[in-house]
Design a protein around this nucleic acid. Structure first.
Lengths: 202, 202
DNA sequence: GCAGTGGCTTACCGATTGGTAGGGAGTTTG
DNA sequence: CAAACTCCCTACCAATCGGTAAGCCACTGC
């Protein structure tokens, strides 16, 4: 069974929204790439906002899958967090798209979420906080402290993931390739260092 | 001498572009906030893209100032980097705006920079790489390694800076206030840990 | 054979987009 | 006093936006 038109439109929407954002892409742009009219797209999705919501739901599902996969590979929470964060470093194009959409959601979701009533990142962030608190030495950390360190590490991973095209523009292809090679080892070192920090109220 | 109309328009553009992005704001939106027509705005700025470019130039100037200020407060490069990164954690609203614009530039600048031929972050990033290489133990790090760690730390700082409204939506005001209080100490610990990593080819 | 149904089309809508043309009021300058 | 300049206006433009209405065509189930 081949991919349905709906699936193809969804994939294109995902890519274009990641590149240019919600306002930067028209439904006609998306339909055009498949030789269709925007009315064809509106046959599959009730309106533009719902289409965007569908894309976000996919992203949120992706993150949940990464989280579950990380929890299976290792028993200790520190290893789980490391696996998860390393997995979030984009290597193939589709992962870059996911990272960019995630970042855009952080920037733009306030008006969207208020009308839609959905915070796609909520459970993901809560789960991460739980994992941090399970790390030895972090049991007595406050929720705010756990969230702070999670955010710093997510930032370390995702900021880089978003900047590929920019970095290439500034530094050129060769340096970016070297950067991509150097990044994971550097990240490992940072993760180790971050969780080595002891948290006890003593 | 009061602020000129041009300056006021520029400040409003800065705020609105930070909130909703380039495509999410019309020049009429900006002019409206001052009771002017968009043609009045077009009298001060040749077109929308040039206006946006002006906003970006301001941001880039801001970053340079922060960098110079950080270089004055301390003699050792590690302290300078710490001061700079801590200064980039947004505390007042205008700093949040700057952080959000910076993030948007990372996401959107590819099509813009290609036509404009300007990479606003280039000198800033290059300077930071220089500072990292001056840190004891990092002299022999490759440029890629230095860039990797810089990017991770910038990410740790800026990802958080961008997410304020989102976090408030998810966790509520009280928790976000606690998070804001916990963040700097956590960041200090991360910075210490990151630069404690020794880099020698031995 | 015929009523759905899914997938798409053309035709159209009002609203908004970035931008141009030209003019008018007030101030500055020669 | 007149020319020039600054600042902002109304009027207008073609293009595009998201979305509705209605119909066409191929296929399916009864």
């Amino acid at each position: 069974m081949a991919q349905t038109t709906r699936d193809q439109l969804l994939a294109t929407a995902r890519r274009l929204f990641a590149e240019r954002g919600f306002y930067g892409v028209s439904i006609a742009n998306i339909a055009d790439e498949h030789g269709l009219t925007k009315q064809a797209l509106l046959h599959h999705f009730p309106n533009k906002a719902k289409l965007y919501g569908e894309v976000l739901r996919e992203i949120s599902d992706d993150l949940d899958k990464l989280k579950l996969a990380a929890m299976e590979t290792s028993a200790d929470p520190k290893g789980q967090l490391g696996t998860l964060l390393r997995a979030m470093v984009p290597t193939i194009e589709d992962e870059t798209i996911r990272t960019r959409l995630l970042m855009r959601e952080l920037l733009d979701n306030v008006p969207r979420a208020e009308t839609a009533g959905t915070w796609y990142l909520k459970t993901f962030l809560n789960d991460l906080v739980g994992m941090v608190k399970a790390v030895p030495g972090w049991a007595e950390a406050t929720e705010a402290e756990a969230l702070a360190v999670i955010y710093q590490l997510l930032g370390a991973v995702n900021y880089f993931g978003v900047s590929g095209p920019t970095l290439q523009g500034i530094f050129g292809k060769t340096k970016v390739r070297m950067l991509n090679e150097a990044f994971p080892a550097q990240l490992d070192a940072l993760l180790d260092a971050a969780f080595a920090i002891r948290h006890s109220k003593a």
